[in-house]
């Protein structure tokens, strides 16, 4: 599906993957995080193949897929406490702070089933923040979000790369991130 791809991303960089529907953006991201195995070639993290110690690699990355990985019957705060809690120890204050940062403080105690798709996306983004890891891999992070929410995603990505982290995101519309740290990878469907 994808061939002839070769790239490296450094700390402090944001790699924006674009391309028409079906070009393989999601496949590329899922291969990068090790969920899908590449037929040939290799993917390394800090110079080591990612599957050599997949658990160590996975503990360094946060993945946000198309769907926001939330349980409809749990509240936003509960979702984060359980979802991120299996990765690392977090307390209620950290959860509340993260929800605050994505503008979700107003609905943190409501069951996720009552939230709109955009509100869910904000909660899922709070999860990425809470993971506290250097590598973010995001598939359409701004989907369902309003203008304010898209600006928020831009700010979060910027903060992550300024702090020396790496963000790889597949997007339809470019995120509002300063050009300095941004690199673009365009996939074509041919």
């Amino acid at each position: 599906m994808l061939r002839g791809l070769s790239f490296a991303v450094d700390g402090g960089e944001y790699l924006e993957v674009t391309g028409p529907n079906g070009a393989g953006k999601t496949s590329l991201l899922r291969t990068l995080i090790g969920l899908v195995h590449a037929e040939s070639g290799r993917i390394t993290w800090n110079g080591r193949p990612i599957l050599e110690d997949a658990r160590a690699y996975h503990s360094q990355l946060a993945w946000l897929g198309h769907e926001s990985p939330l349980k409809a019957d749990l509240t936003a705060a509960e979702n984060l406490a359980f979802g991120i809690g299996i990765r690392r120890r977090i307390d209620a204050v950290a959860v509340a702070t993260a929800l605050d940062e994505v503008g979700a403080q107003g609905f943190s105690d409501r069951p996720v089933r009552t939230l709109s798709a955009g509100q869910r996306r904000r909660v899922a983004l709070a999860g990425v923040l809470l993971a506290g890891v250097p590598l973010w891999v995001l598939d359409e992070p701004a989907t369902h979000l309003d203008a304010d929410g898209q600006a928020l995603v831009g700010r979060l990505v910027e903060r992550q790369i300024v702090a020396g982290g790496i963000v790889v995101a597949a997007v339809h519309a470019p995120l509002p991130v300063v050009e300095a740290g941004t690199r673009r990878l365009g996939l074509s469907s041919k």
């Binding site: 995080i33 996975h58 897929g65 769907e67 926001s68 990985p69 939330l70 979802g83 990765r87």
Partner: peptide, 15 residues
């Protein structure tokens, strides 16, 4: 599997 929780489990860094 449907809501992506399994994916997150697989990527959690835990076994």
């Amino acid at each position: 599997a449907q809501d992506g929780t399994l994916e997150q489990y697989a990527l959690s860094g835990q076994s």
